[in-house]
Amino acid sequence: MKLLPLAALLLLVLTALEARPKPAALKCRTGPLDIVFVIDSSRSVRPFEFETMRRFMIDIIGNLDVGPNATRVGVIQYSSQVQNIFSLKTFFTRAEMERAINSIVPLAQGTMTGLAIQYAMNVAFTVQEGARPPHKKIPRIAIIVTDGRPQDRVSEVAAHARNAGIEIYAVGIQRADMNSLRAMASPPLEEHVFLVESFELIQQFGKQFQDKLCGG
């Protein structure tokens, strides 16, 4: 579990800004990934907060080497239901992904996180939806971003997803329930569970998360 209080996070961001390389060196070059963002769009997420989630996704995608033979990206949102925004096979340029993310209309209902994880496992990470076959050993990564407490069970379905080869990062914002984040995430928890103190800071957090995602 990694707690990011305001002062510590700002210090890390300032340090990263001072030491960051030129833009051409920011791309993730550790090999291809299959990444699915699982975004909470329940009614408790305010409009400006959802806009910040958009920026978080766009910032991370902007630093990935995306393409059919490189990193593939999918996005689903959830509340009381799950909606596929785009699949791993849909887009292969950052511009297309950014347009689709900016067009998302929040669902604004309940918070069925377990249902969203089930969908990711059974649908989003299937070969039919664009995931590379298991024998190719391309890492499958789910990034769950949520501000609330799930209204359904997450432990069992998350365990099934992890056993199916999906690496889960749980990013909680503000009111997120830490026990639920820990129940979702892959071990070691200190590398896969993050609690960001406010939505205002998630964009800066994304820059640090990029290093973690790319093994930096």
Rank of each mutant, 00 (worst) to 15 (best):
M1Q: 12
K2T: 05
L4A: 00
P5T: 07
L6K: 13
V13H: 01
E18Q: 04
E18Y: 08
R20L: 13
R20T: 11
R20E: 10
P21G: 15
K22C: 07
A24V: 00
A25S: 05
K27F: 03
C28S: 08
R29A: 08
R29L: 15
T30P: 02
G31V: 04
L33G: 09
D34R: 13
F37D: 04
I39N: 13
S41G: 08
R46E: 15
P47H: 09
E49P: 02
F50G: 01
E51L: 04
T52Q: 11
M53W: 07
F56A: 11
D59R: 15
I60L: 12
I60Q: 02
G62T: 13
G62A: 00
N63Y: 02
V66W: 01
V66S: 09
T71W: 10
T71C: 12
V73I: 00
G74I: 13
I76G: 04
I76R: 12
Q77P: 09
Y78S: 06
S80W: 04
V82R: 11
N84T: 09
N84E: 15
N84Y: 10
I85K: 01
F86W: 10
L88V: 02
T90D: 08
F91W: 11
F91K: 10
R94D: 13
R94M: 02
R94P: 05
R94K: 10
R99V: 06
A100H: 05
I101N: 05
I104A: 00
P106Q: 06
A108I: 08
Q109C: 07
T113C: 10
T113S: 14
V123L: 13
V123C: 05
A124H: 02
Q128M: 02
R132M: 02
R132Q: 02
H135C: 01
K136I: 06
K136D: 14
I138A: 14
P139H: 15
P139V: 15
I141M: 05
I141R: 14
I144N: 01
G148C: 10
R149L: 07
P150D: 04
Q151E: 15
D152S: 11
A159P: 01
H160W: 05
A161R: 07
A161H: 09
N163K: 02
G165Y: 04
G165L: 05
G165T: 09
I166Y: 12
I168Y: 08
G172V: 03
R175P: 12
D177F: 09
N179G: 03
M184S: 06
M184K: 06
P188H: 09
L189E: 14
H192D: 08
V193T: 12
F194P: 03
F194L: 08
E197V: 12
S198Y: 09
S198K: 03
S198N: 10
L201Q: 03
G206D: 14
Q208F: 08
F209Y: 00
L213M: 08
G215S: 14
G216C: 04
G216M: 09
